[in-house]
């Protein structure tokens, strides 16, 4: 049981990191980025190409994360401009459709150039024992990186001026503007951060299981579910939701059966939405 829960937490940290990038962008003006998972895949392919080109793994990972961050910034500077000019009600649909189109374009380009591409980062070594449970080295690294980034994000949003500025825009765009914060600058930075997080997810995911070109859509859906369960716009909520769903997924996979576990996971997400319609940390 201990092993299952620990596994679930590690899986859930990944879910959480995935959800954060989605939830931040949504918080800033109500757009869900359906191309989010494709950013991760883009990063994965860049990393894979760089590694096969002879680059050291760490450098390649940084390059991949930068590529995804650039994609995020470019998305904000191009397609998102007309979206944010719309009133809030129309933003949702236009944002959904444009990012959906972008998702098709990115996936199309990647499957065209590199149809069998994928990323696996294997970290050798004997499994490390945590609380008496042996865990693969790759998983430990992935979890540690995710935890570290999660802490940095929380500190960033709680204690730095820019982080507080971001939260003020999430709370009240007009109010933020009145005290001298530029929502459009904040958005550009957050889109970049969101892309970087997607890239980071690609890297940490590939330490435990391969990430392929066709996997982008599933990543988007999981990010969507995690961010909604956690409460849109809340970083801590996304991590908490991710860990909860990770444990639910692992426990049900172990004790009920693997195909049911997906249904249980989705059911748990639906139930959370119904019990707390604004998510765990929603306001």
């Amino acid at each position: 049981m201990k092993a299952v829960i620990l596994d679930g937490i590690i899986l859930g940290l990944g879910f959480g990191l995935l959800g954060v990038g989605m939830t931040l962008v949504y918080g800033l003006g109500g757009v869900l980025n359906l191309a989010y998972g494709e950013f991760a895949v883009l990063a994965a392919i860049v990393v894979a190409q760089a590694i096969s080109g002879g680059m050291p793994t760490v450098l390649a990972a940084v390059l991949g994360i930068l590529a995804a961050a650039t994609a995020g910034v470019l998305l904000d500077l191009s397609l998102m401009r007309p979206v944010y000019r719309q009133s809030t009600g129309h933003r949702v649909l236009l944002g959904l459709m444009l990012t959906l189109g972008l998702a098709f374009v990115i996936e199309g380009v990647l499957t065209w150039r590199d149809p069998l591409g994928g990323l696996t980062i294997s970290i050798g070594g004997k499994p490390i024992s945590i609380l008496g449970v042996p865990i693969a080295v790759g998983s430990v690294w992935a979890a540690l990186i995710t935890l570290a980034v999660g802490v940095v994000l929380l500190v960033f949003f709680a204690a730095t001026t820019f982080g507080r500025g971001v939260r003020s825009v999430i709370q009240d765009e007009l109010g933020a503007r009145l005290v001298g914060i530029s929502p459009s600058l904040v958005r550009t930075v957050i889109f970049g951060l969101s892309g970087a997080l997607a890239g980071l997810v690609a890297v940490t995911q590939s330490m435990t299981s391969p990430l392929t070109v066709s996997g982008g859509f599933n990543l988007t859906v999981y990010a969507l579910i995690v961010s909604v369960v956690g409460g849109l716009g809340s970083v801590a909520g996304a991590f908490l939701a991710g860990i909860l769903l990770g444990i639910v997924d692992d426990v049900s996979a172990r004790y009920i059966g693997s195909y049911i576990s997906d249904i249980v996971l989705l059911g748990a997400a639906a139930l959370t939405i119904l019990v707390r319609p604004r998510g765990l940390f929603g306001s």
């Binding site: 949504y26 859906v221 579910i225 049911i260 989705l266 639906a270 939405i273 319609p277």
Partner: peptide
Amino acid sequence: WVAVRRSLGVIFTGVLTLAFSFAFQDLLFG
């Protein structure tokens, strides 16, 4: 009815039904 009862917004209704969609697919395979 559920969505109206819990006054879910557009996005939340979307994600709830999306979850149903995927669960249904799993059910078909299972």
